[in-house]
């Protein structure tokens, strides 16, 4: 899982039927200091995250499909947690 920050929302009307009714968010991967790392990506939201939230995301299809219980869902990235606090040495 990676840490990220939700930086935006994506609206699309024409989409694969499996994506119907799901919220797509733009996520910027961040380090523990909150600084951006690498390229942004799109993730499906499973925890009612919003813009500005620091989140936990998985970027792997098998786990993502298990969350939604659909074996033929073409999905890879899901937001699975909202981070309250990070403590590092």
């Amino acid at each position: 899982m990676i840490l990220g920050r939700v930086i935006g929302t994506v609206v699309s009307t024409v989409k694969h039927p499996e994506y119907k009714g799901l919220k797509l968010l733009v996520v910027q991967p961040v380090g523990t200091d909150g600084a951006a790392h690498g390229d942004s990506f799109i993730a499906v939201d499973d925890v009612q995250a919003g813009v500005g939230d620091t989140i936990l995301a998985i970027r792997e299809g098998n786990g993502a499909r298990q969350i939604f219980g659909r074996k033929d869902f073409p999905i890879r990235a899901v937001i699975v947690g909202i981070v309250d606090q990070i403590d590092v040495m």
Binding site: T9, S12, K15, Y19, L24
Partner: peptide, 8 residues
């Protein structure tokens, strides 16, 4: 898998 209408 989707055509994007807008990104906010």
């Amino acid at each position: 898998v989707g055509v994007v209408d807008s990104i906010d």
